[in-house]
């Protein structure tokens, strides 16, 4: 048999990696199929879904001429703000309660909780990133905004935000399997965090005393970083990479620890 273990040798890292890669790939394909099916736009929905949200919000803000405390073009402002929101809000949404609704898959020994999380997070990252990328190009070519000033910084800021979203998702997903309260509390919390996340304002426009309190919210750092990469010469961004990094690391480590414990307790159908 192809995968036979040599007697008395432990599972090698390479073999485990090969198994995990093919399991995550299989889960991604399956998720695409169950979520979008083979009808109408099919796979294309992956990009269209987040794009519709962003375009909707952007048009709304443009129409009411939302006041965001700076003179940045409103389209660019909405795109950068709302896309970062999508990362930290949709990633947890996809993962919370994912295990209990997919218990049948755990019937196969190689499918673990972490694979289920990883496949969904990867898919969400690809979906939101490509929609963000496409809209940036579109708004740029139609003259509604300038291209990002610092592309490298944008990549860094985007990846840090994605990591934050993924680690938050890992944490909430794992805790959410232990207590249904998480799902009940996360949705209102995400809703309340929407206006506080820095999407609707720039930190510089806020009085210094309040600003410091606002900067306790990690999402504000994400948005500020992304905005600096886009309009660095026009705004003063307020963020700390170290602060966001410590959030990311803490959530990742605690999330992985709970996930590990969870995967020992789980009872598949």
């Amino acid at each position: 048999m192809a995968d036979e273990l040599p007697p008395s040798l432990p599972r090698s890292f390479r073999r485990s990696l090969a198994i995990q890669t093919r399991v995550i790939w299989a889960l991604i394909l399956r998720e695409l199929l169950t979520r979008y099916g083979r009808h109408n736009l099919g796979l294309f929905w992956l990009y269209v879904e987040p794009m519709m949200f962003t375009i909707g919000v952007t048009i709304l803000w443009y129409a009411i001429g939302a006041n965001h405390g700076s003179n940045l073009p409103i389209m660019a402002f909405a795109l950068t703000g709302y896309s970062t929101i999508l990362l930290w809000r949709n990633m947890p949404n996809r993962v919370v309660m994912a295990v209990s609704s997919n218990l049948a898959l755990m019937y196969h020994r190689n499918v673990r909780v972490i694979d289920l999380f990883a496949s969904r997070l990867l898919l969400e990252f690809i979906s939101i990133s490509s929609s963000f990328f496409f809209l940036t190009i579109l708004f740029w070519f139609t003259g509604y905004m300038d291209p990002p000033e610092d592309l490298l910084e944008l990549c860094g800021a985007w990846l840090m935000t994605a990591w934050f979203g993924a680690s938050l998702a890992l944490f909430l997903g794992a805790v959410g399997e232990k207590s249904e309260l998480v799902e009940k509390l996360w949705h209102p919390l995400a809703y309340i965090l929407f206006p506080l996340s820095g999407a609707a304002f720039i930190a510089d426009a806020i009085p210094p005393g309040t600003r410091e309190k606002m900067l306790l919210i990690p999402m504000v750092h994400c948005t500020e970083m992304v905005r600096e990469a886009f309009f660095g010469s026009k705004i003063v961004a307020h963020y700390s990479v170290g602060y966001l990094l410590s959030w990311n690391l803490s959530l990742t480590i605690i999330g992985l620890a709970i996930e590990r414990q969870l995967s020992r307790e789980i009872i598949p159908e």
Binding site: A2, I19, R22, V23, L29, R30, H108, N110, V111
Partner: peptide, 12 residues
């Protein structure tokens, strides 16, 4: 068919 594909992919 989709189930066959999925399970085959998992087991390589």
């Amino acid at each position: 068919v989709d189930n066959v594909r999925f399970i085959c992919r998992i087991y390589g």
